[in-house]
Simulated scan of single mutants.
Amino acid sequence: MKILFVGDVVGRPGRLALSRRLDRLVDVHAVDLVVVNGENAAAGFGLTVDIAKELFDLGADVITTGNHIWDKREIIPCLDSFPALLRPANYPPGTPGRGSGIFATAAGIQVGVLNLEGRVFMNNLECPFRAADELVEELRRKTPVILVDFHAEATSEKVAMGCYLDGRVSAVVGTHTHVQTADERILPGGTAYITDAGMTGSRDSVIGIRKELAVERFLTQLPVRFEVAKRDAVLCGVLFDIDENTGRAQAVRRILEEISDSD
C-alpha cells in the first residue's frame, strides 16, 4: 500500500500548492492514504477550524501538527471534534485533542498514525520515546502499518527516534525544520526513515517567511512581525510503499513538486 506524507503546509501558498498537485500525485502513485502536516497552514502559524476543513476537502485523510497547533486559539476547543486531526501525543494528560489514531483506507486497510514532538531546543514535554513505547504497542494491537510524524528541531533526536522505533513501525518522518533532507532510507528492521519531509509553501523565502523580514530579525535582533512569502511555491513530501501484512517498508521516495507563479 502507498502512504503519501505532505510536509508542513505554510499559509495560503502552501494550501494552493496542495490544491494544484495533491490530486495528481494521488492518481499517479495510486496513493491509499494522505497524511498532511498542517500546523503552519493558517498564515504561517497555527491552524483554524475553517482551514482544517479546507485541508480535508483538498484530500488530506489525516492532519498532523506540532508545537504551533496552539497558535490559533479557536482550534483548541475543537480538537476533540476532529478525529483525524492530531496534535503531538506527548503533551500532559488532559491536553485537548488526541495524539494518535487508526484510520482506514478506501480498501479497508487499517493504518495507525502517531504524532510526537521533540524536546531538544523545543518545549519541555513528556519524553517522546517513552510515549512512543506505550502508543506504538497500542496501535500494533490493531494494525502492523504505523506512520510516525516526529515534529522536532534536532536532527540527532530525529535520527535517534528512527533507530529506536526501527522494526516496530512502518515509517518515521521528521517535520518542523521545513527543509527536505536527502537521507531517506529503509532501516535494518524495515522502518522507512527521513529526517525532514520538507515544506509545502514558498521556496522564495526563509522556511516559508518573507526573506527580508527574516533577515531583518537576524540583523537587528529586534521583534519583527513575520509574514508568509508568496512566490514560487513547492509541495514537498514523502511517498512510502508499505507491506500491509507485515508493516515493513518496501520503498521510500522523496517528492518535490514545483508550482510556478503562472501555474
Score class of each variant (00 low, 15 high):
residue 121 F to G: 05
residue 231 R to N: 11
residue 104 A to L: 14
residue 68 H to S: 00
residue 136 V to T: 05
residue 223 P to Y: 14
residue 184 E to S: 11
residue 214 A to S: 10
residue 172 V to Q: 06
residue 39 E to R: 00
residue 154 A to V: 01
residue 20 R to W: 07
residue 34 V to T: 07
residue 160 A to I: 11
residue 38 G to S: 09
residue 178 H to K: 04
residue 84 A to H: 13
residue 29 H to Y: 14
residue 119 R to M: 02
residue 255 I to N: 03
residue 121 F to A: 09
residue 184 E to V: 03
residue 140 R to Q: 15
residue 80 D to R: 15
residue 17 A to V: 14
residue 134 E to Y: 08
residue 204 D to I: 11
residue 223 P to F: 12
residue 227 E to F: 06
residue 30 A to L: 03
residue 211 K to N: 09
residue 69 I to Y: 00
residue 112 G to F: 07
residue 4 L to F: 07
residue 205 S to M: 10
residue 258 E to M: 12
residue 57 D to G: 05
residue 257 E to W: 13
residue 23 D to C: 04
residue 45 F to T: 07
residue 24 R to G: 12
residue 123 N to V: 00
residue 250 Q to W: 08
residue 151 H to R: 06
residue 83 P to E: 12
residue 50 D to K: 08
residue 142 K to Q: 14
residue 9 V to S: 08
residue 188 P to I: 05
residue 9 V to F: 06
residue 177 T to E: 00
residue 248 R to P: 01
residue 64 T to V: 13
residue 21 R to L: 08
residue 210 R to W: 03
residue 71 D to M: 00
residue 68 H to M: 00
residue 212 E to C: 13
residue 151 H to P: 01
residue 96 P to C: 12
residue 240 F to A: 05
residue 114 L to S: 06
residue 213 L to I: 02
residue 73 R to I: 07
residue 154 A to P: 07
residue 192 A to C: 07
residue 46 G to N: 01
residue 232 D to S: 11
residue 166 D to H: 02
residue 37 N to L: 08
residue 237 G to E: 14
residue 223 P to Q: 11
residue 134 E to H: 05
residue 193 Y to H: 08
residue 55 L to N: 04
residue 65 T to Y: 01
residue 124 N to V: 06
residue 255 I to F: 08
residue 31 V to W: 04
residue 4 L to C: 13
residue 194 I to E: 01
residue 187 L to Q: 11
residue 160 A to L: 08
residue 11 G to K: 12
residue 136 V to Q: 08
residue 53 K to I: 12
residue 233 A to Q: 11
residue 79 L to W: 04
residue 5 F to D: 11
residue 80 D to Q: 14
residue 66 G to C: 02
residue 95 T to N: 10
residue 206 V to S: 09
residue 2 K to R: 15
residue 40 N to G: 05
residue 53 K to H: 13
residue 107 A to K: 15
residue 159 V to I: 15
residue 8 D to A: 02
residue 25 L to T: 05
residue 58 L to P: 05
residue 99 G to C: 10
residue 61 D to T: 04
residue 167 G to F: 06
residue 201 G to P: 09
